[in-house]
Design a binder for these strands. Structure first.
Lengths: 225, 225
DNA sequence: GAAACTTTTCAGACAAATTTCAGCTTTTCG
DNA sequence: CGAAAAGCTGAAATTTGTCTGAAAAGTTTC
């Protein structure tokens, strides 16, 4: 997961970088708005943490230009001021969330997680999560040089998990979406397929695993890169 | 941000109102306990500043009744007396913080900020209180870098406490909301889960603790920042 | 129509969540 | 003070939900 941090107080910028790094996010740090815009336009980030008051270009402007350039990377704005007008302004420019300094690092991380939750990108007819690529056309799962073919149900279950990457998919949802609304299928059916899939993930040597939330469902655990 | 001020010394009340207004807080001022209770019950405030000695209903009583009505707005108590018994009394009734007159306006503002710092707010699908973040989807509790998974009941109990983090949650409520209306579960069941949770809070090194109000219930003690 | 694959069913093993219980500490109140 | 009530907590016991191997049943492919 790559994060761009644009913050001119070097002290704070460093702290942010550290917090992120501890969470295994990969970060780039820049100290003014112009650089921020530049990096955000050139590179691929999963989120941008953007201070409002930046030299050269302020945060609002950076956000506006990014959106104008159709870059849809989620933006989290930071500001020292706790003023309503700013808040509105920030969100109007295309920021996705907003935090006032000083902030709690746990909260920052929670917000980052919330912003980056939308994943499981569909590119053409492939779904991507972590080191896995699911080809929708031929129903095969690829990791690096290896690949396996998936049965229809296997495929549908994994597709659900990958499309809702990071979110927990309830067992019930899996049943109704894969087996259909009126079906005899029971929880155990899902469990069996999860077991099949886990075996294949291990076979492929993927870093992705399938997590269980007891009494609820399953989710894809995509380790931060 | 809306603040209710209940203070009978008009002189002081006015000063308070002014201080708040300068900070762009929106304030309502009332001069006795009955009005205070009335307003606090009817309107939506982000915090209540409550003098202890008030005509008609004293501050303790107002706080108690608010909590009884399941209003969890943070309460800052003001008193001229600097007595320990009062302090205990105030916190028992459900006040969240306590200041003795005369006070410094800077300190007052700092405390208000602390009280209103998004606590128990649902953000995406996380609940935040103090240094704790509860992820509602995967049912795990996070503090800084550490996190623990919670069982279903554990999770529900903590969720209740965090969602009402300025109020005491009665044991009975916990039982009916977590175990359901018709259940054999006894007080001890709740006690056991509170014990589980306390252990996990300590494990995480959180500053948040779970407080007990004898014969009533439990509340989250979120230390002022 | 046989081989190869997919899907379903089932049962035992297993692990986690939950309950129960007993002894202990703290608080309350006469 | 001291007894009774309320609460705390560790450990054992129980229940519940999940995992997984194997076999049976059903499909597709050639």
């Amino acid at each position: 997961m790559r994060i761009l941090i644009a913050e001119d107080e070097k002290h704070l910028a460093e702290a942010l970088g550290q917090i992120m790094t501890e969470q295994r996010y990969q970060t780039d740090v820049v100290y003014d708005g112009a650089d921020g815009l530049d990096y955000a336009l050139t590179e691929q980030y999963d989120a941008v943490v953007l201070d409002v008051m930046l030299p050269k270009l302020d945060g609002f402007e950076v956000a506006r230009r990014l959106r104008a350039a159709h870059v849809s990377t989620p933006i989290l704005m930071l500001t020292a001021r706790d003023e309503v007008p700013d808040k509105i302004n920030g969100l109007d420019c295309g920021a996705d969330d907003y935090m006032t300094k000083p902030f709690d690092s746990g909260e920052l991380l929670a917000r980052i997680r919330a912003l980056t939750r939308r994943q499981g990108e569909v590119l053409g007819n492939t779904l991507i999560a972590g080191d896995l690529t699911l080809r929708l056309d031929v129903r095969c799962l690829i990791r690096g040089d290896d690949s396996v073919r998936l049965g229809f149900k296997e495929f549908e279950v994994l597709r659900l998990l990958m499309a809702n990457c990071h979110a927990v998919v309830p067992k019930e949802d899996i049943i109704t979406k894969v087996w259909g609304l009126e079906t005899e299928a029971e929880d155990n059916n899902v469990e069996v397929y999860i077991s099949f899939l886990r075996k294949k993930l291990i076979f492929l040597g993927s870093t992705v695993t399938i997590g269980t939330v007891r009494k609820v469902g399953y989710f894809l655990e995509v380790p931060p890169v």
